[in-house]
Simulated assay, not measured.
Amino acid sequence: MIKIQFAPNEVARYARHIILREFGGEGQQKLKAARVLMVGAGGLGAPVLSYLAAAGVGTLGIVDDDTVALSNLQRQIIHDTAAIGSAKVDSAEQAVHRLNPHITVEKHALRLDENNAASILERYDIIVDGSDNFTTRYLLADMAADLHKPLVSGAIGRFDGSVTVLKPYEDSNPHYRDLFPAPPPAGTVPGCAEAGVIGALPGVIGSLQAMEVIKLITGIGKPLIGRLLLYDGLDARFDTISYKRRLIF
């Protein structure tokens, strides 16, 4: 591994990481060298970007084609009232740099589709899905698998959320479509605007996604590969479902 130099103030910034026996200076160097793409700078993207920036992930790519609206602020805490009307990628970049000026931010103010996804995803080590629609979720899952990129997938709705990690290109690990073979019919699953969502829920799920990213980068712990972590906010309960590869691709 190439040794990366830290400025004195970076050593102080990351001191609580560096003293961890499982982590140390080598783990922090891995974070600084890493390139992570966050798809969506909304409810899930807010905690993911905040915690990865605070942790010292060297390069954060942000994909989002939306602007900040007043109704976003109840849960998308990377944005504030002054950012209303601004592009979410711009607002998120400013928040990341306020938190940690050592982070490089790469902005992609667009919606991912079959024509541009591969050229963007291939630039990064790990992909994080914070999208709010099934088209993007399935596109990301399929494209990340084809490009051999780990995907940290999260989803929320009303009071519930879920997280899983996908690396189907290794060891016969399952695909996203082993878990969810096909998108639900259009209009059958209401989005946040129709069904609502409790504001703190994305913080729980996004923080779990950030933790999985840090584990993947540093090699510590056991990622949620082949496991779907479910969170019920009303009942304050976590459950884990194991799943295996069952489809032929």
Rank of each mutant, 00 (worst) to 15 (best):
P168E: 12
D160T: 06
A155D: 05
Y138W: 04
K149F: 11
A141N: 09
S162E: 14
L139C: 08
H175E: 12
D171V: 03
G157S: 12
A118W: 07
D160G: 04
T135G: 15
I127Q: 03
P150S: 03
Y138T: 03
H148Q: 15
Y169M: 12
D129W: 06
D146A: 15
S119N: 15
Y176Q: 05
M143E: 15
I127H: 02
I127V: 12
V128K: 08
L151T: 05
T164K: 04
T164P: 04
F159H: 11
L151R: 08
V163R: 00
D171H: 13
R137G: 07
G154C: 01
Y138M: 07
G161N: 02
I126M: 07
G130S: 08
G161S: 06
G157A: 15
A141H: 06
V128L: 04
P150W: 03
T135C: 12
R137A: 11
Y169A: 08
K149S: 10
L151Y: 12
L140M: 08
N173L: 07
G161F: 00
D129P: 14
G154P: 02
G161Y: 02
D132V: 10
S162C: 10
D125L: 04
D142N: 14
L121P: 13
V163T: 01
S172G: 09
P150E: 01
E170D: 09
I127M: 01
R177E: 11
R123L: 15
D160M: 05
D146H: 14
G130R: 14
F159I: 03
T135M: 13
G154L: 00
S153G: 06
V163E: 00
L121M: 08
N173Y: 11
D129I: 06
A144P: 09
H175G: 06
F134G: 12
A141T: 09
Y138H: 14
K167R: 14
S172Q: 07
Y176C: 06
Y138D: 03
A155K: 01
T136K: 08
R123M: 13
S172R: 07
L166W: 04
A155L: 03
I156A: 01
G154Q: 02
L147H: 13
G157C: 09
S119C: 14
I120A: 10
Y124G: 10
T135D: 14
F159G: 00
G154N: 00
N133Q: 12
A141I: 09
I120L: 15
V163L: 01
A155H: 00
A118T: 15
G161D: 05
S119A: 15
D142T: 12
A155N: 01
V128A: 06
D125R: 05
P168N: 00
Y124A: 07
G154D: 01
G161P: 11
V163C: 00
R137W: 11
V128C: 11
G154V: 00
N173Q: 15
A141M: 10
D171R: 13
L147F: 05
P150Y: 03
A155R: 00
Y169L: 07
T136P: 04
Y124C: 11
H175R: 14
F134N: 12
H148D: 13
I127D: 05
K149H: 13
F159R: 05
Y138S: 06
D125W: 03
I156R: 00
E122L: 15
T136I: 11
